[in-house]
Design a protein around this nucleic acid. Structure first.
Lengths: 370, 370
DNA sequence: GCCAAAAATGTGAGCGATAACATCATCAAA
DNA sequence: TTTGATGATGTTATCGCTCACATTTTTGGC
């Protein structure tokens, strides 16, 4: 007799009173969701055979497989991930920790990761307001409790990198946009190269030097772009103006632009991102300094709108989704083959020439303008 | 003897060879993660007592609780979510399905949801490339397999709403940005009212009529904004120009702007979002039509940059994060108290006056401009 | 100072799946 | 035809936790 030896049907043993409709077996659409035993019973096989079908084990006769599949369909059975995770110790779940997923870059990367993970992994997200060690570690903890198999951190900030060094090293972890200095697997755009290219471009146009509006210094990207700018300046023998810092926002670009507009010696500005450039351009324009005739402006990121700014912005494109995808690849790789951390993948940026930069105006024009 | 009755220590029974370091008990930092039994043993209590401490059951002596807490700390013990979920049937996990989380709105809402859920729920995300019924239902299925307790859908598209009507009705589900027409719980900005306000504002400024660049008609928001525009026009007795549709992108705004620039009768345009407005303004400006002197433009969304466009954009603000938060609240409510679906929450938008709209120019100015 | 009620703790069972092993059926080779 | 190897299936034991119930300890009232 192949029917269940101990439990008659699927009635809970003893006095279990969990509000189940204690129905003999499988009922089409109602009650508690069907479990493997229900499928087994309906298909007339053991639960193990159902499991084998589910996991594509080879040793199942086609006929049997079909019967099981049919029963699964009929009951709309769906294996319970928790039960599965408990025994296999695999959750097929990844955690993504992101700072302010409201910014263009993080949002794009998140999307890229999610899309790439679509098949094969669930993606748990946590976006933190601050990246201090405490909340970082707490989040990793939360994720660990949920048994994520790996974590991607979108947190290009120095404090994040610091916090990251405290997570258990046996947890596969990939950071995007963390400098190469960090002792962990990371994926990032080559900010330094991008910034150098932009700066050199302006220099080559004939500008004596290039001013730079940096992002917040707590961001690695900002720092690297500043480095690239400095390197290009030094290489060309151009004087290095004092560093000005914004906070990624258009507002900060605007405020800085108001100051810069008063200084006629400023003819070229490299902004650490497009949005700062937008604010800067507005301030310059309002102050009567034309872009690019009087002042050339170059941004960084190539947000989708930057081609429609007035004037269309010359900028450095970062392929954020690609970055996200690469990060995911790297993580999946590490989960599967458990390589050691410490790989640094750099994605080259692309310089996009549009209309916001031009050669400096001749003397007469400049006089006329001021 | 309170020590484990069947299993000596935590050695796997029989020939289990799962690569565990079969160490007698709890070892500080190595081997397999500690389980409840390890904590119990270290604290000298039963596993049940540990469980009680973990779940804040009342009947635990303070002294005992302390001992357990200490052991937990010492072992860095973290309860296994899968095991817990298996028995409690609660995963404390929410699913969020989003279309193109790259767009400003969805990205903001996602962030809002995530932040609000931070304490109490895990958030699983899936961003779909297309919202056909098939992929929608597949995703819901994936989520269901993971036993999410509820789902938020950020998918203000008609096809999504259609697909949504096919999900099992016992799953708490909230949609953001779905029209009130849909038979499900939803949270949305009052697009119609916002669009009406914008249109009326332009009319009140003295424009004879207002042109409208709509978003893709598959988006409910786009449709509602169009409705609001029409209603305002009708109410004011203004003639209704033909409908023009874009695709939310600056590029489409630019292309439409090039056409509109050739028509001198166009003096006021209400765009279905800010980015379209940006493209439109660029096209108008390039064609020599000044904004707002020759043509007034109003947008929708109030993206952070819109205040720094040239000219700063008059627009309708949607508080996306608030929307996300409300959606989460509604969902949590439904999970807890299991109310019926069908609630429609509308968040009022806010009209933001900046510089891109002005009274129509006098006859002489208009002649000079064309 | 003794017994009932309440508080604190311990003991199995079982959530729903997979892993390992046992068993039965089937087929090729001797 | 009989035997050994393989293929297909069933049986049992966990995974790590919470539930229900059993048991022990404490408390309080007489």
């Amino acid at each position: 007799m192949p029917s269940s030896p101990r439990n008659p049907g699927r009635l809970g043993p003893g006095g279990q009173a969990r509000g189940k409709t204690a129905v003999a077996g499988h009922r089409p659409g109602a009650g508690r969701p069907p479990v493997m035993a229900d499928v087994a019973q309906l298909a007339g096989v053991s639960h193990q055979t159902v499991s084998r079908v589910l996991n594509n084990h080879p040793n199942v006769r086609p006929h049997t497989r079909e019967k099981v599949l049919e029963a699964i369909q009929q009951l709309a059975y769906r294996p319970n991930a928790a039960a599965r995770a408990l025994v296999t110790r695999r959750t097929h779940t990844l955690g993504v920790i992101s700072i302010d997923s409201t910014l263009y870059g993080p949002a794009m990367m998140l999307d890229g990761i999610e899309r790439a993970a679509q098949h094969g992994y669930f993606v748990l997200i946590a976006s933190l307001p601050a990246l201090d060690r405490r909340s970082m570690l707490d989040t990793v903890d939360r994720f660990l409790g949920h048994s994520v198999e790996g974590i991607i951190v979108i947190a290009p900030q120095t404090s994040a990198v610091a916090a990251l060094s405290h997570v258990p090293s046996d947890l596969p972890l990939v950071a995007v946009g963390c400098g190469t200095r960090a002792p962990l697997t990371s994926v990032a755009v080559d900010n330094t190269a991008g910034a150098s290219t932009a700066t050199r471009y302006l220099l080559d146009l004939g500008h004596e030097t290039v001013y730079h509006v940096a992002g917040p210094s707590s961001w690695l990207d900002a720092r690297e772009r500043t480095d690239g700018w400095r390197a290009a300046l030094r290489e060309a023998g151009a004087p290095e103006p004092e560093l000005i810092s914004g906070d990624w926002s258009a507002r900060s670009g605007y405020q800085i632009g108001q100051e810069l507009a008063r200084r006629p010696e400023v003819t070229a500005v490299f902004c650490s991102n497009d949005v700062i450039a937008l604010g800067l351009i507005r301030a310059l324009t309002e102050a009567g300094r034309r872009v690019p005739e009087d002042v050339s402006v170059v941004g960084f990121d190539d947000v989708p709108e930057s081609g429609f700014y007035l004037p269309p912005l010359t900028t450095v494109r970062q392929d954020f989704s690609e970055l996200g995808r690469r990060a995911l690849d790297a993580l999946v790789q590490r989960i599967a083959h458990g390589g050691p951390p410490g790989d640094h993948l750099r994605v080259p940026p692309e310089f996009v020439v549009r209309a916001s930069a031009a050669p400096p105006a001749g003397a007469m024009l400049r006089q006329a303008g001021s």
